[in-house]
Nucleic acid binder design. Sequence first.
RNA 1: CGGGGCGUAGCGUAGUGGCUAGCGCGCCUGCUUUGGGAGCAGGAGAUCGGGAGUUCGAAUCUCCCCGCCCCGACCA
Length: 590
Amino acid sequence: MTVLRMSSLFLRTLRDDPADAELPSHRLLVRAGYIRRVAPGIFTWLPLGLATFHNVERIVREEMDAAGFQEVRFPALLPREPYELTNRWTEYGPNLFRLQDRRGTDMLLGPTHEEMFTLTVKGEFSSYKDLPISLYQIQTKYRDEARPRAGLLRGREFVMKDSYSFDLDDAGLEASYAKHRLAYQSTFARLGLSYVIVDAHAGAMGGSKSEEFLAECERGEDTFVRCTSCDYAANVEAVASVAPAAADFSGIPAAHAEDTPDTPTIATLVDISNTRDDLRRDDRPWTAADTLKNVVVKVTYPDGSSKALAIGVPGDREVDMKRLEAAVHPGAVAPFEESDFAANPALVKGYIGPGVLGTESASGIEYLLDPRVVSGTRWITGANRAGSHVYDLVAGRDFNGDGTIDVAEVREGDVCPGCTAGTLFLARGIEIGHIFQLGRKYAEALGLTVLDENGKPVVVTMGSYGIGVSRAVAAIAEQSHDEKGLIWPREVSPADVHVVATGKDESVFAAAEAVVAELAAKGMRVLFDDRRQASPGVKFNDAELIGVPTIVVMGKRLADGLVEVKDRATGAVAEVALADVVAHLCAELL
RNA sequence: CGGGGCGUAGCGUAGUGGCUAGCGCGCCUGCUUUGGGAGCAGGAGAUCGGGAGUUCGAAUCUCCCCGCCCCGACCA
């Protein structure tokens, strides 16, 4: 197998951290000479990095093939038309890399390839007998991210494995989805990643069921929740809040407006409600959770249209903009500005109440309520007049929304929607995989149908499944490193063994050459530090930085016929007789 | 796109109006050295991000532009 010789490897490790890298994965991959930045979010893979990348790619490919999926490869450079058909030329917005050829024809660099997969299957297959089928590709993708960051984790050019399943009916899709889920579990296990499968929000792609594979990592950019007592896990965007049961409101007094001067915020409102005798509550002090906050935003759609939307949430919670964006996708959310208030005189900033909200109301603004605002709940809320609030306003008696919207912030300690017994806690992760049931959206838009047993055309239902290949390299580095450097899982590592020869005694190098040759003959990938001029310290430090899981040191102890076999992760060192070292390593690693 | 920070050799940096822009790492030559980032000697390498201006004199001051990093917004 391969022997990489440090004396001639195209590699330069850096003693200092690069100034433009923050995350450990980014810092170490640059320092260890795996990657180099070319432009923001665009990187060059150097030999060690490329070897690592190839290993991840190979594992992904092997697992896809083992699951019976077939590999294809679409161009990265694509014509505009297919994306026009699904409206994504417009909907994808500024994140799409667009360009023109010499004749001025619009082209794009593919951010994802739903259209190509769908059209290709349409072009070849037309019978129910051809289904189910799953195709995948490993291809470079392009997205003009507003802010590339974190090295390989969020780039503008990256490599992704994307698969699509094509089925006749929902049961078939369910089965294809399950197969992919299993294939992903074995893939990530082999990659040595510690991950969680969380419920995700499928709304963005118009599908139904969707799950994300998140590599657990404090520095990850996705926030998810887990339950203290059951196995519920979900991306914060997808958490379904637990609604309390509707309550009896027969004993609640009639709503009454009160003058509450200078209370434009929830804090000032709660404060005045607890200090004034006429407003105070008998049984307990008022809290922010007793107030109903009505937030108005402007939602703008890709076609340029926009509308106002009012959201009623308990006053102790903020509207989570990420959850809101996910809920109104593909609409974009912007705050309601002074000019918008001017255009809607019924809305009194800071004192907005349900009375002026709803499609049936004077304002005509759609009014959606948090799921916690169930019938019978009692609220303090704006009276639509500056310096005035309504008390004892009861949902279901005094007001109703046009519907519910679950976009309030998710907090540690919230009731788990999975079991309703445990509570939720927050964690962070890196999205390394995403699977979802796309349904018929693309098949419909692009006319992918097959004839069924009766000769009738049936719209095919699809699933879509992605793994960030280049991102996985960084995710592994992020999860597996220490102060000294990287620590690769063996399958991913650029080599199985890193043999370090030290000293100036040529017999040591000769012995090392022999061991390296034997290991290679046994099928091991060897990184061999055969540099004559580098000092032992340099070699040891480089070995720890580079992160090959097993380091074999041949040097001083060779005088006693011994070599050291060091485990990079634990630091444990075993002294092995020179004559036994190849057998020892084979027993351990093969 | 908003906020913050930064741009000096391949990398990390010093230098706030005054001599030939300094140091460490790395690189080249020679000698010495070889178990935790070696020593000595010699060397190559910088339009100080770009442009305009102020000044006898600008890496340093002013203006404009460009680029990069971080936070937020955004992100199948």
